Simulated assay, not measured.
Amino acid sequence: MPSTFRRPLANRVFVLALGAIVATSLSACSSSNTTAANNSAASKTLTVGFVPDPSWAQVPVAEANGYFKSEGLTVKVIDFSTGVQSLQALAAGQVDITTSADVPVSAALASAKNMVIIADGSRWKGSVIVGSAKAGIKTAADLAGKKVGTPLGTSAAYFGASFLKQSGVDAQLINVAPSAIVTAMQQGNVPAVSIFQPFQQQVIAALGSDAVVLKPAAGTYVQQSLYLASTTAVKNKADALKSFELALEKASKDLTSQKASAVSAVATATQLSPDLVKTILPEFDYTIELPSDLPTGLSSLGQWAKTEGNLPSTATIPDYSTFINRDFLPAP
């Protein structure tokens, strides 16, 4: 801290005048340097909306293993229960990046124009219906006339609707929040659920021998687990977005090899045991990419969203290719 002292009165007026000039100059330089430093730090700071789901397991792994830090990033992660909520935060400018599955993204992009897709973080083929044997569920046919719990408007709801249609079963999908799924099944509020990970595995574990896993008869829905960025972040934080995806790529390699630190990070984020994490990680392809057929798939999901009332019947399905930005993908 600089020392302070008093000058002789004869010199004080001149010194004060000179001091004012110097102080103004130094203040301007200091302010300029501070502003530049702050701008630089802000450009490498990202707020990330995260749905605690193994689909985007790169986020907790990159955070735990120091990959964000090694890329020069300061990352603040905010948890959301569903992709629908995380997309709302992105549209409102509350986060720079968010995670969401393809189904809610297809609906969000029909109205929100301030976001783009910057990566497909994983593909998941593990969707199933989980039923309760005590509730009389043994096969898909037993769902007829019953209610199936699911968070409406999500990838889980899409799979549930597709499963019922494929099985020729007339059942009703009702809204159950992810956080209430396990309790709803344990208390018998619904006889079956369609839910994404980690809740799917939590339901199966909670029901134990009472759990009945119903797989689709033919084919399956492959959930595409997307990363989206605000157009503001694309404009002002391009270098940070590139660094973010490089960190995700490093984390993907750890997930694919089931590195112990990666398993531990996912277990902590999803509240699953490490053994269960090891069981479900192979269900995911963690390659960071943007498949060429993504716009076509989103268009189909957008049409489904209209039929389900998640989009107004008058809504125009956009050209989803205009929302895809490949500038930040890691080099092959």
Rank of each mutant, 00 (worst) to 15 (best):
S81R: 07
F80M: 03
I324E: 06
T82E: 09
D319Y: 06
T35N: 12
I97H: 10
K259V: 09
A247N: 11
P8H: 11
T99F: 04
T220F: 07
A157N: 07
N236I: 12
A180E: 15
F50E: 11
S55G: 15
L46M: 06
P282I: 01
T256K: 11
F196G: 12
F163S: 00
Q197H: 03
R6Y: 15
G208Q: 07
G131D: 08
V15K: 04
L255R: 00
P274R: 06
E308D: 09
A157G: 04
Q224H: 13
A177E: 15
A92L: 01
L294I: 00
A177N: 12
V182S: 13
I174C: 04
V176D: 13
T314C: 01
F159A: 09
A217H: 04
D53N: 14
D285W: 01
S127G: 07
D327C: 02
A10Y: 08
K242L: 10
P60V: 11
F328D: 06
T314E: 07
D120M: 08
T99D: 12
A205G: 03
A305R: 11
A89F: 00
D170Y: 07
A217E: 12
A192M: 13
N114R: 02
Q187G: 12
D327Y: 08
T139C: 04
G149Q: 06
V176I: 15
S106M: 04
F159G: 02
E283M: 07
Q201P: 00
I181Q: 15
S179E: 09
T4E: 15
D285Y: 00
V84L: 06
G153K: 10
A205H: 02
L311M: 05
G136Q: 12
